[in-house]
Design a protein around this nucleic acid. Structure first.
Lengths: 141, 141
DNA sequence: AAATTACCTATTGACATAGTAGGTAAATGG
DNA sequence: CCATTTACCTACTATGTCAATAGGTAATTT
């Protein structure tokens, strides 16, 4: 299960991507548009800053902004950073202690195959692939 | 992340599949071979019985046995039953309350696509596809 | 100086995970 | 018939994670 942290982070990144022409975006605006508690988003955005995905500046006129353009982020790198790992079983998680059953475990190849599928899927998607895919329009027609 | 419940359940099923010629297999044997606490396996096997995946008989000479042959189980049905859902985000989980953002959510199509990938992967694998895939041998050569 | 914004530490309630403990019921072998 | 083996059942618990909330300080602009 992908947690709110990863999912909200992606939505914040998307929101920033779609409003990048407006300069630095206050978190308040993102929180309102996305209908997510601003307080909670603070925690998430802090990690996005630490990961160098976004930059923030304080004060009036401040806010957050992407560091790169939307097509230069993969969904995978964002999720992996926020979730800690994309691995679906503990024994395949980076930094996990080596399981003594590796080698004889009959299920490990299954998990490894699924892990690769997952990794390839999310690293194959770019932030720019997701913009403008909601069915409801923002303004018009 | 797939929990121990699903992973252990799969290993129990596999163990039973590989020893089905020996008739009813005591859980004690499975626990020893798989190096998993028998007490914990009891909980898991109870659910396998409830799901009609295995049958158990009490008393001396008793134990557990698969209900069908190994090629008639998909990995997906076993995991889904044990984990409750295979869905990777809450809003796609069966029985989840409908999210008011469905329709405007820009990330939903991504999760839906990944969900389908996951579902197809695990339902495309059969128990019999996993037998005999550990590298280490049981006895010999 | 006032307002706005990011940034930081700490805390919390709810829930799931991964078991453990200690029994009862059923079936068999001797 | 009785001891043994096995499944089956209820309850408990420690630990950790999740999803926030609370209440501040620091930076920047007008």
């Amino acid at each position: 299960m992908i947690s709110t942290k990863g999912r909200y982070a992606l939505r914040v990144m998307l929101d920033l991507a779609e409003h990048e022409s407006a300069g630095f975006i206050p978190l308040k605006d993102v929180a309102e548009r996305q209908e997510i508690s601003k307080k909670y988003l603070e925690i998430i955005v802090r990690e996005l800053v630490a990961a160098n995905f976004v930059v923030g500046i304080s004060g009036k006129g401040g806010g957050y902004r992407l560091c790169r353009s939307a097509e230069d982020y993969t969904v995978g790198e964002i999720l992996e950073r926020m979730e800690g790992t994309l691995a679906t079983v503990a024994c395949l998680s980076a930094g996990a202690p080596l399981c003594p059953r590796t080698g004889s475990c009959e299920t490990l190849p299954l998990w490894a195959e699924y892990d690769k599928l997952t990794h390839d899927f999310f690293y194959g998607k770019r932030l720019s692939d997701l913009t403008g895919h909601g069915q409801a329009a923002h303004g018009g027609a």
